[in-house]
Simulated scan of single mutants.
Amino acid sequence: MNNNIKKLREERGLSQKKLAEKCRVSRQTINAIENNKYDPTLELAFRLANLLNVTVDDLFIYRRSE
Rank of each mutant, 00 (worst) to 15 (best):
K6Q: 14
Q16V: 06
N36T: 11
E10Y: 02
N31G: 06
E66R: 04
D57I: 02
N36C: 07
I30T: 01
A45T: 07
R63I: 01
V56S: 08
N53L: 08
R63P: 01
A49Y: 13
V25G: 03
F46M: 11
L52F: 06
Y62C: 01
E34W: 02
R9H: 06
R63H: 00
S15V: 01
I33C: 05
D57T: 06
L51G: 10
E43T: 10
Y38Q: 13
R12K: 15
N2R: 14
Q16P: 00
T55W: 03
E34N: 02
S65M: 01
I33K: 03
A32E: 12
I61C: 05
L42M: 12
Y38H: 12
N31F: 09
L48R: 02
E34Y: 03
Y38P: 00
K37Q: 15
A32W: 03
N2M: 10
V25Y: 03
M1G: 12
R24D: 13
T29G: 04
I5G: 07
N53W: 04
L8F: 15
R12W: 04
I5D: 09
D58M: 04
D39H: 05
S65E: 12
E11W: 07
V25A: 07
K7Q: 11
L48I: 15
R9Q: 06
L8S: 03
E21C: 04
L14C: 07
L48S: 02
N31D: 07
V25M: 04
C23V: 11
R64F: 02
L52H: 03
G13I: 06
I61R: 11
L44F: 10
I5K: 07
A20V: 06
V54Y: 05
T29W: 02
T41R: 09
N2P: 00
N4P: 01
A45L: 08
Y62H: 08
R27P: 01
R47A: 08
G13W: 10
P40R: 11
N53A: 12
S26R: 05
A20H: 14
K17N: 12
L59A: 08
V25E: 04
K22A: 14
L42F: 14
